[in-house]
Design a protein around this nucleic acid. Structure first.
Length: 208
DNA sequence: CTAAGGATCTACT
DNA sequence: GTAGATCCTTAGC
């Protein structure tokens, strides 16, 4: 007698991580921070294989007072004054780490703050590090995503195209929204925050 | 809403 | 040197 057609195959495997685009080279960052920042939306950012799709960033330029580089080089921000394509990690509010990608020519002192990701790779590691289950709470803020990816000051001043860091190009052009930056008290009106339109993985909604 | 938390920077002595 | 303010945030009330 024919058996019931119930599945003899193993349960469908866990959702596989999305296919990755080509690896980004350091030269990707050798452009205006205002071009690089929106171009980062939709790219995949991994640290030791853990990470996801960048959904939210902010641009900072030395010419405006919200930038750490505004008052010139210091021990903390000196990597911002160096060549593009390197990481800049700083301690925020004495508690969290935040990661930036340095852009433009040496001396331009501009960088993109990575503010949120859609987790796609290494979800178990992220949940363990963050101590929360909800996917939307893993990387929805600059401090949260550093905790989820294991980023500390040890990850500052590293090249963005070498392990442990990897960046992969987006496969399709995303719809991007812009707005004012979050958490700053100076130059508050510059619309230099960029986000993936409609994403559920933002630190905060973009006003319509 | 606010505390937590510690480095960093400015403005002085 | 040292005091005091600030800070690209988050979690929890």
């Amino acid at each position: 007698m024919a058996q019931k057609p119930r599945s003899t195959k193993p349960r469908s495997p866990p959702a596989t991580a999305p296919r990755l685009g080509r690896a980004l080279k350091r030269s990707f960052f050798d452009r205006s921070v205002h071009e690089v920042a929106p171009d980062l939306i939709g790219t995949t950012f991994l640290v030791d294989g853990v990470g996801g799709i960048i959904t939210e960033v902010e641009a900072y330029h030395h010419s405006e007072p919200a930038a750490h580089s505004y008052r010139g080089p210091t021990p903390r921000n000196q990597v911002m004054f160096g060549p593009p394509g390197f990481s800049y990690v700083y301690r925020s509010y004495g508690i969290h780490w935040c990661v930036n990608f340095v852009c433009e020519q040496p001396g331009s002192a501009s960088a993109v703050l990575i503010r949120a990701l859609e987790p796609t790779h290494g979800l178990a590691a992220m949940r363990r590090r963050r101590g929360v289950e909800d996917e939307r709470a893993l990387c929805s803020g600059p401090g949260k995503l550093c905790e989820a990816l294991g980023i500390t000051i040890a990850h500052s001043e590293l090249p963005l195209d070498r392990p442990p860091i990897a960046l992969h190009a987006r496969l399709e052009a995303p719809d991007i929204v812009a707005g004012v930056r979050i958490g700053i008290t100076k130059a508050v009106d510059l619309p230099w925050r960029y986000g993936l339109k409609g994403s559920k993985f933002l630190s905060k909604r973009f006003p319509r």
